[in-house]
Simulated scan of single mutants.
Amino acid sequence: MGFTLSDWMLYTMWAIYGLMILNFLIAFFQSFWAGKFDPAFVLEYLKDIVYIVLPLNLLISMFSIDPTGWILITFYFISGIAVVLKYLLDIKNKLIK
């Protein structure tokens, strides 16, 4: 476990994927035990990958063209924290119901 910038970028992506999977499993088990299983909710997570994870990867791939070297990385971490908070609040709301 390192503390370099690339390590923190990797940890951010792990946190996003981990919370996404946890959110998916909670939604899956809640709908399964309620008896109203609808496979269409899986599409919401595919949309999240396209609308959330892909832009974060695009930001990192554009790092080489950033003249300052810190603008895209700062935006990446702000966006990553926002996504983590989004999933934490979604999980909290699902567990409270």
Rank of each mutant, 00 (worst) to 15 (best):
I60C: 08
A40S: 13
Y17T: 10
I49P: 05
D7P: 06
I26S: 05
N57H: 15
N57S: 15
A34M: 08
I21Q: 08
T4M: 08
Y51F: 14
L10H: 14
L10K: 15
L22T: 14
V50C: 08
I96R: 15
K86F: 10
Y76D: 00
V84R: 01
S6Q: 13
L88E: 04
W14P: 06
F32E: 05
L95V: 09
I91V: 03
I16T: 03
D7E: 07
N23M: 07
V53P: 00
M9G: 04
E44H: 09
F37M: 10
V53I: 00
W8H: 11
I60M: 13
L19F: 08
M1T: 04
L10Q: 15
I91D: 00
K47S: 07
N93Q: 12
T4E: 11
W8C: 05
S64F: 12
D48N: 13
I65Q: 15
I49L: 09
I60D: 08
L25Y: 13
A40R: 14
W8Y: 13
P55C: 03
L25H: 10
W70G: 03
I49H: 06
F32H: 12
I26M: 04
Y87M: 01
F41E: 05
I60G: 08
Y51R: 12
V53R: 00
A82P: 00
S6Y: 11
L43Q: 14
I16C: 02
L22G: 11
L19S: 07
T12S: 12
M13L: 10
I91M: 01
V42Q: 02
I73M: 05
V50S: 09
L46D: 11
L95A: 03
L43S: 11
P39K: 04
I60F: 10
K92E: 09
G69Y: 01
F63K: 13
Y17W: 09
F24M: 02
Y11C: 02
F77M: 00
L56Y: 02
I26T: 06
D7Y: 06
T4A: 08
L72D: 02
P39Q: 02
I81N: 03
A40W: 09
W14G: 07
S61I: 04
L58A: 15
L19M: 10
E44V: 07
L19P: 05
Y51W: 14
T68N: 13
V84Y: 00
V50I: 11
V83Y: 00
M9P: 03
W8Q: 09
L56Q: 12
Y87L: 01
Y51K: 12
K94T: 04
S79Y: 05
S79M: 11
I52T: 03
L46M: 15
M62V: 04
N23F: 08
K97L: 07
K47R: 13
L46Y: 13
I60L: 15
L56V: 01
M13P: 10
I91G: 00
Y76R: 03
L43V: 09
Y76I: 01
T4R: 11
M20S: 11
S79W: 05
D7R: 07
